[in-house]
Every structure is written in C-alpha cells, then in structure tokens.
Design a protein around this nucleic acid. Structure first.
Length: 576
DNA sequence: GCCGTTTTCGGCCCGACTGTTTTCAGTCG
C-alpha cells in the first residue's frame, strides 16, 4: 500500500475522531502522522511490518498498530466503528471552507445532513438558517463553496514555475515604489515548494494606503480587493492570488518569518520558544514573564533571539530543522552558484528548439565549465528519434565545436531509453563512442514495481550508463510516479558508481526531495540537470537546486559542483 | 495520540477573522 493511501486513511480517521468530539491533540496527532507518512521516502507499509514505523516522528505504538491493520485487512477497526455513526461523506462536508468538524456534526444531528448534496439542499431551502451560528452569510458561503468543490475539487494548487515569476515581477515593481522600504517573498514560493496556492508578499512601509493602491494598479492585476492597513490582495489575469501584507519596518522580520511558514515549522518554533519563556507571533517575540516584546527588523534576528542558527526557507517544513539549528547541525546547502555544468539538454537534433551551437553558447554565457548534449535516442518516437549513424555524426560535430569553443568542455552524449528489459536502445559500440550517457525510462510505465526496479537496476549496472534521468517519471499535478523501489535503486547506484539525476524541469523535479535525500543517504552520487529543450529553460537549474536544498544536500553531495577535471574522473566510464 | 536538556504524566502555538452575537466559538493560515 502506498504512503499516500495510508496517509489518507489516517487523515480521514482523524476527522472521524474529530466528528466524535475527540480532544484536538489526538486529532492533530493523526493529521501530523499523516503528513509525515505522506512525505516519507521509504515504504511505511514495510516499516510497519518490520515494527519500525515508530521511528517516524509523530508515529507511536497506537498508530503503528492501526497502520498494520490497514495494510493487512484494508481497513482500520476504529475507523469502521466510527463510520457506523458518521457517514464517510460527512468528512467531505468538513472540506467546505468555514465548516469544520463541530459544525458538520451539528448539521448531521440537527438536519440529518451527511454529504455535500444534502448540505446544498439545506442551504437552498433555507433550512440551514435554523442551526445556531448559521445565518444568511453562511448560506451564501455554503452554496458558493459546494458549487466550487463540485466543479474543481479541493483547493487548486499551481506549479511553482507558474507562480514564482509572477511573484518576483510584482515584488520587483513594488520595491521601486518610493513609500516601500523593502519587499520580501514569503510563503511556499519562498520555500521553493513544488506547488503553491498563492503568492505571499510582505512590504515594509509607513504608507499602507499607497502600497495597497500600487498593488491594485499593478499591470498583472486583473481584479483587486480593497486594501487596508494590514494588507491588500489582487488576482492576476492567469488566476494567481497575490496576498500583500504590510509591516512597519521595525517588525518586518517578524512578519516575513511568520508568513514564510510553513505552518508546521512555526508550530515547532513556538513550542521551543514556550520552553524558554517566550511567545512568538507575527507581532514580535514576547517574554512571558516581563511582557516585554522584541521586534525584529530582519528575519535573522527572530532565529537569533530563539538561540537558533538561521534556517534557510527551503528547510522550514517542520521536520528536523529546528533541532538541527539548535545543535549547530544544519547543512551548508548547495547554491545555484555552486553548479559548474549541466549534464542533460536537448537540441534540434531531437526535440529541442535550439541548435547545438546555441545551447553551447548559452551554457558558456552562464559561466559553465561543461555542458553535455544528450538528445533522445533511437526508439524515442514522436518523430524525433536519433538513429545510430545520426548520433555518430553528431559526436563529430560536438568534438569540432568543443575544439572551437573557449573555456568550456562540450560532452557528446545521449539520453538513451531504458527498454523494458533494462537494456539501453543503442548498441554498446555506439555508447562507447560517447563521453556521457544518461539512461531514462520513457515507455512502458505500467509494469510492476519489481519489474520496473529490475529494469532500472539493470541500466544502473550497465558499464556504459553514467547516470539515470528523471528516476520516477512523475509529472507534478499531472502524472504520478511509476512504481519503483527507490531504496533498492539508490543502493545499486551507490554500488555501481552510476549517478542519479535531480531533473530541474519544474514539472518533474525528479528525483523528488524525499528521494534525493534517500539517494544521498544511501551514498549515491547526485547530479542536478535541467533537461533543457531550449536556451531559456537552462534557467530551470534553480528548481533542481531548490529540490536539492529541500533535500538538505550540500555542494559536496552534488557531482556537478566540481570543476571539469574532477567531474570527469567521477564518471563511471572514467573509473572503469 | 505523542513525547521528554523541566517530564513516562501532563503538557501539547498564536492571532486574526467571521458571523452571529451581546461575549464568543469555530475556523483558518
């Protein structure tokens, strides 16, 4: 059973307990455990069977038993029992914004509502108003929310790459405003999460009205709400909500810290603060005894006041980062400036939009020391396969250009398909002519986990395969990863000296941060690539680096932070 | 239900907003 399924079942059980009136700490425990399980890179089913699920933070003996029951029998007895009293569809009702478990339960008891359809009927017929705490506004809210849920499902998220450029453009413009002292991006976009719900910006100013007006007048704004002293809001023409919070310059750091989150990070931060007699909020850090409030103009001061090392935004997910910051054990994260070369890109020879020369020149302009040209291979299909003779001709072209181009090494490579039996789709004598070989799965996704793992491990063991591309084939928000045992793959990669790629395409970010962490822990060598199909998308290196940073990786753990000579020696073909 | 540089029991983050209400519970981020 997948981690996401286990997480969903525990989260549902948490809500059922909440409907039943359980203390909120118990409910929170289920939700927190669900989150940890969802993000776990290793199979929680296997962990539970080995009696090791309690190694996950937030999972104790009780939850381990429930997980075991779930994976063995397909359901949890406690949940089955609760479902006799509360219909599962009542859980959906709690997804309506503004309706929590307590309200849902009252609606169930007083109006017999057990699902969205009945909730809608009750709102339409005016029966909703008979319930204490529900009036006309609640009725309107419910009708709009149910309508939206039926149309779009649960809250929509967008890819970071759709949101981040908008956020940066608006922030840059606001920063130019004379009344603005500073603007910072906050929220999940600042943490470089895979997806975002909206854009959070914090502006330091003494003139909220003017800044709110500037946001409303931004060229990207399609609609804008009325701004106030605390903030303003607008929506762009492509449906991205921008939330602007206004801070006085002396409290700018407090607001930036607070709204960067994550919520879980802030909870853990405050729990730690309480133990030291401090109370943290967006309005400052209060000494509980004296009542004295410390304001922080800069975010760094918040962490300093709590006797913590500064925590990079990418790490603020409520995991082990606070403990690490307290013990001086935070890693020095890899940066974009550390990256010395890109080992995965395409040209017009296959499905790229720019020529070999254009891609090489773009890499040189970026200051890279090396670039690998890795067009698709003989069986890629879609009309952009590269037959062996074409590839060998391309090798000569790359070598010729490499001799001409100054200050950079061009590698003749390929992104070869891993066929269902695990072999690359060029013969060894062709692969042997190349400087660099990435092997990726592009076909036959729907095979068993064992078959897929065997297939990729076979490629890892091939002496002429240097690196595995986009390990799980996922497309964020569009296609889930294929079934593969990443632990076994990582061990094989470490044992064979085959590198594993973090693909920086923002649709992929594959390996994921969880898998990248697991691979690094297993001792595998990691490279960060863009898979660029045009000059412009070489900039996607930022998303690859972001994933590496969210995986807690240092420059040492990334092969393409090395200069060419060192990197060349790390290649498997150089070691053979 | 989890967890421990105070703890194996007794704690477990903070404030704003909303809608409905004369003082606040529920919800949200």
């Amino acid at each position: 059973m997948r981690n996401t399924e286990i997480a969903a079942a525990l989260s549902e059980l948490g809500t059922l307990y909440e409907l039943d009136g359980a203390v909120r700490y118990r409910v929170n425990a289920y939700r927190e455990a669900a989150r940890v399980i969802r993000d776990s890179p290793v199979s929680v089913e296997e962990l539970a069977r080995e009696g090791r699920a309690t190694e996950l933070p937030g999972v104790g003996k009780t939850l381990e038993e429930k997980i075991l029951a779930l994976v063995d029998t397909g359901s949890i007895p406690a949940a089955d029992k609760l479902k006799e009293r509360f219909p599962v569809s009542l859980v959906e009702v709690t997804q309506v914004p503004g309706i929590g478990a307590r309200t849902a339960r009252r609606l169930h008891e007083e109006l017999g509502i057990s699902g969205l359809e009945q909730l809608k009927e009750a709102a339409e017929s005016g029966r909703l108003r008979g319930v204490r705490g529900m009036g006309q506004r609640a009725e309107e809210n419910v009708l709009a929310a149910v309508d939206r849920l039926e149309r779009e499902g649960v809250a929509e998220r967008q890819l970071l790459s759709q949101v981040l450029p908008v956020a940066e453009e608006v922030a840059d413009r606001l920063r130019e405003h004379p009344a603005v002292a500073d603007v910072m991006l906050a929220g999940s976009a600042r943490r470089m999460a895979e997806t975002c719900k909206d854009v959070d910006l914090i502006a330091a100013t003494t003139d909220p009205e003017a800044v709110g007006a500037a946001l409303a007048a931004d060229p990207l704004a399609a609609t804008a709400g009325a701004g106030g002293d605390a903030g303003a809001r607008m929506m762009t023409h492509n449906g991205i909500t921008v939330e602007l919070r206004i801070a006085k310059p002396e409290e700018f750091g407090n607001l930036v810290q607070h709204f960067t989150g994550s919520a879980e990070h802030n909870v853990k931060l405050r729990e730690r603060a309480v133990g030291r007699g401090l109370s943290v909020s967006e309005h400052g850090i209060k000494d509980t005894d004296s009542g004295e409030v410390t304001l922080c103009a800069a975010e760094e001061e918040v962490y300093e006041r709590l006797e913590l090392a500064y925590i990079e935004p990418e790490l603020r997910e409520g995991g082990a980062e606070i403990k690490a910051a307290a013990n001086g054990k935070l890693p020095k994260l890899v940066t974009r400036e550390d990256i010395r070369g890109d080992l995965h890109c395409h040209t017009t020879l296959s499905d790229g939009h720019n020529t070999l020369e254009e891609m090489a020149e773009a890499a040189r302009e970026r200051g890279y020391s090396y670039l690998a040209i890795t067009d698709h291979s003989a069986t890629h299909g879609f009309g952009n396969d590269v037959q062996p003779d074409a590839l060998l001709a391309r090798v000569e072209e790359v070598r010729a250009l490499d001799r001409k181009i100054n200050g950079m090494k061009l590698l003749a490579g390929t992104e070869t398909n891993i066929l269902p039996d695990g072999s690359p789709d060029y013969e060894d004598d062709v692969l042997g002519e190349l400087d660099w070989v990435i092997a990726s799965v592009h076909t036959s996704f729907r095979i068993s986990e064992k078959a897929m793992t065997d297939r990729v491990v076979a490629a890892i063991e091939h002496p002429l395969v240097d690196c595995i591309g986009h390990l799980t084939g996922r497309m964020i928000l569009r296609r889930r990863p294929y079934d593969i045992d990443v632990e076994r793959v990582a061990e094989a990669a470490a044992a064979n000296g085959t590198m594993l790629e973090i693909n920086g395409n923002p649709n992929r970010r594959d390996m994921s941060e969880q898998n990248a962490r697991l691979a690094a822990d297993a001792g595998a060598t990691i490279v960060i690539n863009t898979d660029a199909h045009r000059v412009g998308t070489m900039e996607n290196i930022r998303y690859g680096v972001a994933t590496a940073r969210r995986a807690w990786l240092t420059a040492d753990q990334i092969a393409n932070t090395r200069g060419w000579r060192t990197f060349a020696r790390l290649r498997k073909r150089a070691r053979a």
